[in-house]
Amino acid sequence: RPCDAHGTFLPPGSAPEPPLEKMPDDWTPFRNHTKFETAEFFFIENQTPAAQINRLLDLWASTLVKHDDRPLFADHRDLYKTINNIPVGDVKWESFSAHYTGERPDIPPPWMDQTFDVWYRDPHQVVWNMLGNPDYIEEFDYRPYREFSTDGNVQQWKDFMLGDWAWDQADLIATDPETHGSMFVPVILGSDKTTVSVATGNNEYYPLYASIGNVRNNVRRAHREALAIVGFLAIPKSKYLHSFFLNFLPFR
């Protein structure tokens, strides 16, 4: 059943809500057009390194002291934070750090003293963006279904929502009156052995991918934003001697 953005059911055949129009002078989250242009120059056009951004902003600030004013950005972190808060486009990246907190031997291996960064994007928001992508309107399955050949009445298997598992899950959802009219959205997660090396040190990650079962396989294979990276999982390293510690394997 069609519904609005808050899940309230609408009459059958209701058209989708039109996207909200922005005012021509709305540069959110940038304070004004100049701040947007400055960020675009640093980040897109010139691809300025962080250290040089800081240097330029410091020089800019020195010219504004006598006017009791300050530059548009405090430093490169302020610039990046503003860019990440842009409400359109890709979901912003966030991170947290993790380290070992279990039992330690008298001489702990190096990995027990190291901190590992995990980068991620809100998977709920990533899936929400996929569901709202109008490019999939003709290649999107709103419900599980079964397809049979005209020759021999043989069941066909191609897309995710053609599978028996998706059909069974829809049956389970239908047993709860509170979910009647809801759409089943299976989330598919995967990773591979490709590592992303960042400069030097221990910065290697496993990329974590997400997709939804509602889009058809040809869309996912074409990488039309139906397959998204939602995280980079840190890979703790250890010398061969320590790699078989019982507490290292579950931590990794």
Rank of each mutant, 00 (worst) to 15 (best):
K22Y: 13
R31Q: 05
S211N: 06
I137M: 08
S191R: 11
F116R: 09
T150L: 12
T150Q: 07
D106R: 12
P87Q: 10
F36W: 07
I53F: 08
T150N: 04
E37G: 05
G201Q: 15
G201F: 15
N32K: 05
D113K: 11
A226I: 03
N202S: 14
E17A: 15
S182F: 13
W128M: 07
Y80F: 15
T175C: 13
G231Y: 06
P108K: 10
N32L: 05
I86Q: 04
L233Q: 05
L208T: 13
L249C: 06
N46E: 12
F42S: 00
S197I: 09
F41T: 06
E21S: 04
N85M: 05
L10P: 00
T48M: 11
L208K: 03
E139S: 14
S95T: 10
T28I: 02
N217Q: 13
L172T: 05
L227F: 01
Y100R: 08
P16D: 07
F232E: 05
L20E: 09
N214S: 01
Y209I: 04
D117Q: 12
S14T: 03
P144H: 11
Y206R: 09
P109F: 09
N133V: 10
A51L: 11
G231A: 14
E138D: 14
H67Y: 14
F116Y: 15
Q47S: 07
L57H: 02
I235E: 01
A50W: 05
G190A: 08
F248S: 03
D168L: 13
I235R: 13
W93E: 03
W27A: 04
P236S: 02
V185N: 08
I83G: 01
V154G: 00
P49N: 11
E178D: 04
D26R: 07
E139I: 10
T195A: 09
L79Y: 06
R224A: 03
L249G: 07
A5Q: 08
E178C: 04
Y100T: 07
A210C: 15
V215M: 12
E103K: 15
L241R: 05
A98C: 01
P144I: 02
L79R: 10
N133S: 06
T195N: 09
L79M: 00
Y142N: 13
F232M: 04
Q169E: 07
D164W: 08
K66A: 02
S182R: 14
H6I: 07
C3E: 11
A51Y: 13
E40I: 10
Q169D: 00
I53P: 04
Y240I: 14
G231Q: 01
L79E: 02
L10M: 09
Y136S: 01
V215N: 03
Q47P: 00
F232I: 01
C3M: 15
K193C: 11
D106Y: 10
